[in-house]
């Protein structure tokens, strides 16, 4: 499963990269979205390619070294590490709320275009509702 996923990433990454190069050659001097799209393709393609190659070598290394693989599994599933990660995420969320509210206030005072403020406010509301949704979901689960 993991191997198939990685191969898919490799294939899609390479395809996007090549497509990006071809599009640059084909759509010379274009001013619409085609001026940006090839570079996005190259960026995303390189990212996927790099990730899959990295995963391949990591997997190969772990197969050779089962003790290291076990250690990595323990570090990943260790209950204290999980608790730490969750706590860090919770703290980051609190920080994000504070920063987001201040950005909204700042943009409002700077008289930035209304649609930008509306989009930001919608995002803020969406994430706040996502938080409420997860609290309710977890209430039922545990």
């Amino acid at each position: 499963m993991e191997k198939t996923k990685n191969t898919m990433k490799l294939v899609i990454g390479t395809a996007l990269f090549v497509l990006g190069l071809v599009l640059i050659k084909v759509s010379k001097n274009s001013k619409d979205i085609m001026a940006v799209l090839p570079f996005i393709f190259i960026g995303v393609g390189s990212g996927l390619f790099g990730e899959s190659v990295g995963n391949y070598f990591k997997h190969k290394d772990l197969l050779k070294n089962p003790q290291k693989a076990r250690q990595e599994y323990i570090e990943e599933h260790d209950e204290r590490n999980q608790a730490l990660r969750n706590k860090a995420k919770a703290k980051t969320y609190n920080l994000f709320q504070y920063i987001f509210a201040n950005i909204l206030l700042g943009f409002g005072l700077m008289s930035v275009d209304l649609y930008i403020i509306i989009v930001l406010a919608m995002l803020y509301l969406f994430l706040t509702f996502a938080n409420i949704y997860y609290i309710n979901k977890l209430q039922k689960e545990m």
Partner: peptide, 26 residues
């Protein structure tokens, strides 16, 4: 001990120092 219990060494250290309380399973 950490290896036998399947937890990290830091967890054992924190438990011994009293900085961390384990789950009931651990």
């Amino acid at each position: 001990l950490a290896n036998d219990l399947g937890v990290s060494r830091q967890t054992i250290g924190s438990l011994e120092n009293g900085r961390y309380n384990p789950s009931i399973v651990l």
